[in-house]
Simulated assay, not measured.
Amino acid sequence: MGVESFLQYMRDLYGKVNSSVLHATSSGSNSQQIAFMRQLQKDLKVEVASRLPLSNLKAVVFDIETTGFLPDKGDQIISIGAVKVEGCEILDEQFYTLVNADVEIPREISRLTGIETENLLDAPPLSDVLVQFFEFIKDDTLVAHHSSHEKSFMQSACWKSFKTPFKHRIVDTSFVFKIVEPKQRILTLEEWCEFSDIPVIDRHHALGDAKLTAILWCQYLQRVQQLGCRTLQDIYERLALR
């Protein structure tokens, strides 16, 4: 599950994780995972990245597939895919897993994603997946297309699994789209890819969509820098003036 290596990362990064939390988490029970995740969220510093140069900003571009659109009505995450990016370069580091949501997947979702209920039976539970995912992203900035969907489900998942808030920053690709192409009213991922001459491959697969989003992010991040934005803070300030 990667908990021990995650703990070592936390020791190296923060140097102040409470020793009782570390000891408790290492034994692996759900209550101990809760204590660990609460400490992680407490120590997470989300503002540092806003001042870093975009040219070497470390980001994790991710996507989720879900049983629906309303986590507060019981819809669940069924897969997570992610790729790492540094500046405008897509790295070889990838993350993908199915999630045992312990629910029946609606037929229309199976047709869209190709994921059947039986595919999830041997997948890890949500709490394990979240620990694995946080180990993968560490303190990198998250990026997503139409990030409100990802954010709402991650908030619900963290609270459901660990009774802790989700504090990672998620940067929406629309931020850079609005600066580079202010007159465009394109919404969907495939439409942005077609507009940007990017072949649409593995659509509605979490890792496939993460890869498409990463290509878009790198392309438009380069263009937004050409327009004078040097940091995420510059992007936010430029958007505020629109």
Rank of each mutant, 00 (worst) to 15 (best):
Y220S: 05
A35H: 12
V143P: 14
F62N: 00
D139W: 00
H205V: 00
L112S: 02
Q225T: 09
E194F: 12
I77D: 07
G68H: 09
Y9Q: 09
S110A: 14
V3S: 07
A82Y: 05
P53Y: 06
K16G: 07
F133M: 02
G28I: 07
S26I: 11
Q32D: 15
D202L: 09
G28R: 07
E4N: 07
K211C: 09
T164S: 05
Y220P: 11
D102N: 14
V131P: 00
V48S: 12
E181N: 15
D102M: 13
V48E: 10
V3G: 08
D140R: 05
D122H: 13
N100Q: 06
I90R: 15
L221S: 00
L13Y: 15
A35V: 04
G15P: 11
M37C: 00
S55F: 08
A210Q: 07
I77L: 12
F6T: 08
R238D: 05
I34C: 08
M10G: 12
D172Q: 07
M37P: 02
S19C: 04
D128C: 13
Q184V: 11
F95I: 09
E65L: 03
E190V: 13
L126E: 02
Q155V: 01
A59F: 05
D140P: 06
W192T: 04
I105A: 02
I115N: 10
G68R: 10
L232Q: 10
A35C: 11
Y220T: 12
E150W: 00
D197C: 03
S5Y: 08
L52G: 03
V99Y: 00
I235F: 10
L52S: 13
V171Q: 01
C193M: 08
I235K: 15
L70V: 04
Q41D: 09
V224N: 06
P71M: 01
L7V: 15
L112T: 06
C88P: 10
D63H: 00
A123E: 01
E150M: 06
C193R: 07
L187A: 03
L98H: 03
L120N: 13
I198W: 04
F162W: 01
V171G: 08
H168W: 06
A123P: 04
A157I: 00
S5A: 13
S174C: 05
R223S: 14
A59T: 15
L212V: 05
S31R: 13
R203Y: 09
L57Q: 09
P53H: 08
Q76N: 05
K138E: 06
N119A: 12
Q225E: 12
T117S: 13
E181H: 15
R38V: 06
Q219H: 13
R242P: 06
L221G: 03
G28H: 09
R203C: 06
E135Q: 14
P71D: 05
N56H: 15
V83Q: 04
